[in-house]
Design a protein around this nucleic acid. Sequence first.
DNA 1: CATGCTCCCATGTGATCACAAATTCGCGAC
DNA 2: GTCGCGAATTTGTGATCACATGGGAGCATG
Lengths: 232, 232
Amino acid sequence: MTDLAVDDDGRTLHQQVLSGLRRRILLGQIEPGQALTIRGLAAELGVSAMPVREALRQLVAERALELMDNRRVRIPPMTIERFEDLIAARIVLEAEAAARAMPYVTDAVIARLEAEDAVINEAEAARDYDRWIWANYAFHSVLYGAAGHSVFLPLIESLWLQIGPFLRRAIRTLSGHYTVDRHGEALAALRRRDTMALRIAIEADIRDGIAHIGSTLIRSEALGRQLEDSMA
Amino acid sequence: MTDLAVDDDGRTLHQQVLSGLRRRILLGQIEPGQALTIRGLAAELGVSAMPVREALRQLVAERALELMDNRRVRIPPMTIERFEDLIAARIVLEAEAAARAMPYVTDAVIARLEAEDAVINEAEAARDYDRWIWANYAFHSVLYGAAGHSVFLPLIESLWLQIGPFLRRAIRTLSGHYTVDRHGEALAALRRRDTMALRIAIEADIRDGIAHIGSTLIRSEALGRQLEDSMA
DNA sequence: CATGCTCCCATGTGATCACAAATTCGCGAC
DNA sequence: GTCGCGAATTTGTGATCACATGGGAGCATG
């Protein structure tokens, strides 16, 4: 179906499969209940089972997927409690990562952030959700990765992967609302080298974007619980 | 060598290999420069290459190991900057995890924590470093895992795995010093249901235990850099 | 004695196969 | 029509094999 390019760069097949799956998860293109079988994915991607096995294993390690007792893998069902934990973890980690990145934020970094912010605005105007989500990740990645030696980024990416599958469902609701320009506030704080303001802007950005998802989750709590049970 | 029990419980071979390797890393029993080859470990553990491959892949995903350009895996070299990031991440994550666990801390949980604390003290008296380290992990795991739905624990374990290999080297230095009883403070805070005091005790515990390692790292900075270069 | 080259072995990657467990589907009984 | 029950298929796990690459030892040459 979404066949991998016949022959990519020097990356191993397993890495190509992994980044492909990771992208699909981050963009919420994989249905939470959907069956994820090794042979199925292998056939779909036109590779043997081996690279898919390793990719799935890695995604399980990153908590993007869950290994059930059946030894099958699935996207972990979301609960209110888990969702709140994910948000809390995102806030403390991303605020700290942003603050620690501050000394490494050069004008070049700010320029890249502005570029990503522009893409976000374009995508929002064009109702291009995939592009919007992806640019959002890019914006945060560039900021947290500015320091180079990345301890925080992998942890944060794990959290994104866990939230991703439930993002798309709520994103349509979100895009209708007027959203405060938190990225603008963050950029202003960066230009002023104001670490405290940056922390506040990042936290507000996470809470804003997530509040709608949370309310969506709550509204569909009955449905969610039913889905979760049906998969248990 | 350290042969796996001929036949364990219902766990898959790959899981047994994984937890074995994880334990060795957490206890600092794997030399940072040591060669970690699939076939070598497979022969050592008496299994085929397959379970080892998957275990290594998973440890790479958890950042306990690093995939080099040679496609070989090694324990990532430590630098001062990375070490400081690891400590900072531990503090924000573990303090938040502890605070969020507070509502779930029953008397039974406190009893288990007291039991682990007793083990820690025994091990310290007996100069049993492995047991000391392991009980320390257990103490924190019990606390953070009290809430059940664990988002924080996997993230924290990833940080432990990254620090583990460099722990043993410094632990002898540490055990000589008089260490303030931070776990006692944490337990007292738990009994009083004092969340703020708990956060402070946890942060102090991390800083205490780590300060010695940090200074050891700095004292051996020249050696460390040389090691790092030789492995680069 | 240092340096470069060649050959060989070790290693990671990917494919395929064997097997056991689990799921599913279909048939039959009530 | 519904509920069990058994066979067939699907699926994950582990082993083995083929292949290409990279590292290292050994030798020859300067």
